[in-house]
């Protein structure tokens, strides 16, 4: 039996699988390999050393790993789970919160309407939303963006989202954008793990304990309405809103997606969304479109209503409208 003799520089040849036990310097060779393997593992271990800083309470909190999808939770599961979450909030923030699970009300489909003639860009809605929905302050997460648009265009790219001068600025109108709770939501369609879905009242929700953080929904949303927790969210304890719901404003963990839920913890109990109540100009209108007497039904009947990016076919439940005449900034002229 004879092996073909190999070229000296032949990395591709050689005898395979031959532990050189009896070769003259087998012992040294063995020692050398052992040390190399040991060094390799040492380097691997050292490379993984940052994992020592991992806050396991945040990443693998409680029974996270075995937690079931929201839709598979039984009533008992929910009771136990919500109590766990409340305990965790108490540990982390020292706040006695109640985590509820208000379900969609029968015969209700929520619709938002926003009067562009009235909005003056004061951003009260933005921050009321942050406060109500326990959004991270550091890094900052906001569901609403207000665009300062020059009159004469509707190209969103021309809008300024960072304005800080006094508003309203002459020659501009203001356009707040948040989740449009589409009837044909692209974000829901693309989620690989069904962590986001549309509920019966039209609100698209996220199961924060199911999301794997692939951000496909964020890429799919034409309204830039989804926000990702790039790191652990931080909220000062004294700013926690203790009235929470599982599918909306309970504190989120890192690495998951979140979005506007029309404040379902309020609206499913008949209340108004926080952004609406904070709006000092009355530009925001909210209600049940299935009730013909509701404010939003009146608006959709009476006003010149439009939706943003109608061409993408998402059928939003968020409508913009103008008044017949604008009295917004023209001081002292009647409308």
């Amino acid at each position: 039996m004879r092996l073909p003799v190999l070229r000296q520089d032949d990395a591709g040849g050689g005898c395979g699988g031959c532990p050189p036990q009896d070769a003259p310097d087998s012992r040294r060779s063995f020692l050398r390999s052992t040390v190399a393997v040991g060094a390799g593992f040492a380097a691997l271990g050292a490379a993984l050393s940052p994992l020592a800083d991992l806050d396991t309470d945040k990443v693998f909190a409680g029974e996270d790993f075995f937690r079931e999808h929201y839709k598979e939770l039984t009533a008992e599961d929910k009771a136990r789970l919500f109590a766990d979450i409340e305990a965790q909030i108490d540990r982390e923030y020292g706040v006695q919160a109640t985590v509820g699970d208000p379900r969609p009300l029968p015969g209700v489909e929520f619709v938002y309407a926003l009067n562009l003639s009235r909005c003056d860009g004061n951003r009260a809605c933005v921050h009321a939303c942050v406060k109500e929905n326990n959004q991270s302050r550091e890094p900052e997460i906001q569901y609403i963006r207000v665009l300062e648009m020059p009159i004469g265009t509707f190209e969103l790219e021309r809008g300024n989202q960072y304005y800080s001068e006094k508003t309203p600025r002459p020659g501009h109108f203001y356009m707040p954008i948040q989740c449009h709770q589409c009837a044909n939501p692209p974000c829901v369609k693309v989620c690989p793990v069904e962590a986001t879905w549309q509920e019966a009242d039209g609100i698209t929700v996220v199961d924060y304990d199911w999301c794997i953080g692939c951000r496909y929904c964020q890429a799919a949303c034409p309204y830039w309405a989804r926000r990702f927790n790039w790191t652990d969210p931080e909220i000062p304890s004294d700013e926690i809103n203790p009235d929470m719901a599982y599918l909306s404003n309970r504190p989120r963990s890192r690495g998951v997606m979140e979005k506007c839920t029309f404040c379902l913890q309020r609206t499913r109990k008949g209340r108004m969304p926080a952004c609406l109540e904070a709006c000092p100009t009355g530009a925001r209108k909210f209600g049940n479109i299935l009730d013909p007497g509701s404010e939003v039904s009146q608006i959709l009947r009476e006003k010149r209503v439009f939706v943003l990016k109608e061409e993408v076919g998402t059928r939003p439940r968020f409508f913009y409208y103008f008044d017949e005449l604008s009295s917004r900034t023209t001081e002292g002229v009647a409308s």
Binding site: G121, A124, V126, Y162, S327
Partner: peptide
């Protein structure tokens, strides 16, 4: 008529600071 007023702070998200808008 509503008076003009100073808006509440604008976005201040990661890798962006206020006023560093596009």
């Amino acid at each position: 008529a509503f008076k003009r007023g100073t808006p509440l702070p604008g976005p201040n998200t990661i890798r962006m600071t206020p006023g560093e808008g596009p």
